[in-house]
Each structure stands twice: as structure tokens, then as C-alpha cells.
């Protein structure tokens, strides 16, 4: 089998199969195949994920520093809670101020009830490649999840649903380079676009020259474009790059969500993403 002719034939067969798969993928026919295969493996994934989680919990319980870890976790949770509360209070204060200043203030409120219009999903897998930031969750179309719905945790925005199966969904994280989110800086209301970078960092682009953006500023979703609700926490600016020759400023950010430790997420099922191109729901930013 290992002579030159057979090698050539083998490679030709592989090339033909890859080309066929690629063509089907481009035409959109591979998505059902992928989802079907993912459905087949879903029970195994859930089982493995659950077993790994239990094993992790057991090993942690046996550690002598358990008490310290607990205290640390409690304090961290408290810090997160206070951070979110602080942001919400600031947002409320600003909104109140704006309402008082503008008598004819009207706001197009989609009327989202985050408490009731959401489903909780357990993360059952990550993308097998290090350079694609997607996760798989154990809720799907049967739970009311649809494509492009925003996904959050108590710490902020996680991403959006990109593929939905009956019982699973694929979520593109905001740290992926293919993701973009319209955002604004909380203090100055300066707007920009958040994109991911390989390595898991976030960049805020298209910040107009002359606007003041500083390290430490909190960044929220702006709601522009209709792909995400407004006021979802994204992260904190760590570094600002400003050059007079450039049209825009750029800032590097740290996400509030710990993407290395995602276990439970919330899909905002009541939020209907809008597409500016089609005028219908279900679009992207």
C-alpha cells in the first residue's frame, strides 16, 4: 500500500472528500450534519462533564486550604455583587438625571424581564481548538433558545448563540475575533466596538479622537444595532492607544467574565435580536 501510486491515490481521495465537505459547509449543508453528530455525543459530553466536575469538587474538598478557598470565593462573590450593584446604581442615577433634564425623553424600552425571560444553561464543552472561542451549552430550541440570543453570567456579557440544536446550543464568546459588540464607556458615554483577540483579550475600537477614555473605565453594551440589550457589563479598560495620525483611538480591555471558568450561563430568551440589514429579528451586530 505504501508505494508512490497508492500514496497519490490516497491523497487524491482525501482531497476530494475535504473539498466535498468544504463545499457542503459553504453551501450550509454541513450545519445539520454537525449538529446531528453533536446531538449524538451530547449525552456522553454531559456525562463526562458532570464526572469531571464532581471529581474536581471532590479533590477540592480534600484540600487543606478548603476554608481559605471558601472565604476567598465568598469575598470574590461579594466584590462581584457590589461591582454589579455599583454599576447599576450609577446607571440608574444617570438615567434619572437624563430624564429630569429632558422633558420629552422617550426611550425605546424592549421591556425585557431578565428574571423571567431566561434559561440557565450548563456549559458542556469548549471548542476543541485553542483559537476558536466557542462553548456548547445544554439548552437548545426545546428550551426556547434561538440563534443570536445574548448569553450572560452574573458578571456580564458572555456572547451570543450561533447555532441551535434541539437540546444544545453553540455560543460564540465575545473574546473571539469574529465577535463584535457595540459598546459605550459608562462615565463618558463614548461609543465604540468591542472585538475579541486571540489570547482571550478584548479591544475597544472606533473610539473617536478627542473623546476621553481612561484605564479603569467600565464598558457596557450600548444596545445599538439591536444585537444585544443595552447596559450589559462587558469589562474594564486597561490601556488606551491614542495616536494623532489615526482616525480613531483603540483601548485594550479586561472582561469582567472569567472565560476560563465558565460553568453556568444565562440565555436571554426574551430578547429578540434585530438585524439592521433585513429589518427582521435574528440578526447579528
Amino acid at each position: 500500500m505504501d508505494n508512490r501510486d497508492n500514496r497519490g491515490l490516497l491523497l487524491a481521495i482525501f482531497a476530494a472528500l475535504i473539498f466535498l465537505g468544504f463545499a457542503l459547509d459553504r453551501l450550509g449543508y454541513m450545519a445539520p450534519v454537525r449538529l446531528a453528530l453533536q446531538s449524538v455525543f451530547q449525552p456522553a459530553e454531559i456525562a463526562v462533564s458532570g464526572a469531571a466536575e464532581r471529581a474536581t469538587e471532590l479533590s477540592q474538598q480534600q484540600q487543606s486550604v478548603e476554608t481559605l478557598q471558601q472565604q476567598n470565593a465568598d469575598l470574590q462573590a461579594e466584590v462581584n455583587r457590589l461591582l454589579i450593584e455599583n454599576i447599576q446604581l450609577k446607571e440608574l442615577e444617570r438615567e434619572n438625571q437624563r430624564l429630569r433634564e429632558l422633558l420629552n425623553y422617550t426611550r425605546n424600552n424592549p421591556g425585557i424581564s431578565f428574571a423571567t425571560a431566561s434559561v440557565i444553561g450548563q456549559v458542556i464543552g469548549n471548542d476543541p481548538n485553542n483559537f476558536l472561542y466557542t462553548i456548547f451549552i445544554d439548552v437548545g430550541a426545546n428550551d426556547g433558545v434561538a440563534k443570536d440570543m445574548p448569553v450572560v453570567t452574573h458578571r456580564g456579557l458572555v456572547g451570543r448563540v450561533t447555532n441551535v440544536n434541539a437540546n444544545t446550543a453553540e455560543v460564540l464568546l465575545i473574546i473571539d475575533p469574529a465577535s463584535s459588540v457595540n459598546a459605550l464607556v459608562q462615565n463618558t458615554r463614548v461609543q465604540g466596538i468591542i472585538t475579541g483577540e486571540l489570547g482571550g483579550t478584548l479591544t475597544m475600537e472606533r473610539i473617536p479622537q478627542g473623546e476621553t477614555v481612561s484605564p479603569g473605565d467600565l464598558v457596557l453594551t450600548s444596545g445599538l444595532g439591536g444585537a444585544f440589550p443595552d447596559k450589559l457589563v462587558i469589562g474594564q479598560i486597561t490601556e488606551v492607544f491614542q495616536r494623532d495620525l489615526d482616525l480613531f483611538q483603540t483601548a485594550r480591555m479586561r472582561a469582567t467574565v472569567d472565560f476560563g471558568d465558565l460553568s453556568t450561563v444565562l440565555v436571554l430568551t426574551a430578547f429578540q435580536p434585530k438585524s439592521l440589514e433585513t429589518g427582521n429579528t435574528g440578526g447579528q451586530n
Binding site: M1, D2, N6, R7, L10, L11, F14, L17, I18, F19, G21, F22, L24, D25, R26, M30, V33, R34, L37, Q38, F41, G125, D127, P128, N129, L132, T134, T162, E170, L172
Partner: peptide, 29 residues
């Protein structure tokens, strides 16, 4: 040997392509 190595590579690549969000064929190639 070569043919078996390529066979395993093909199977592994297709698995990665199926379970990944990348365009099909990237990991197989």
C-alpha cells in the same frame, strides 16, 4: 506507515472539523 498515518490524520481532522466552529476542512488539511 504512511497510509495508516494519513488515515488516522484524516479521521482526527474530520472529528475536529465537525466539533469546531471553523470552516470544514481546515483541521483535516
Amino acid at each position: 506507515p504512511f497510509s495508516q498515518a494519513m488515515g488516522w490524520a484524516f479521521v482526527a481532522g474530520v472529528m475536529l472539523d465537525v466539533f469546531s466552529g471553523a470552516p470544514f476542512g481546515v483541521f483535516t488539511v
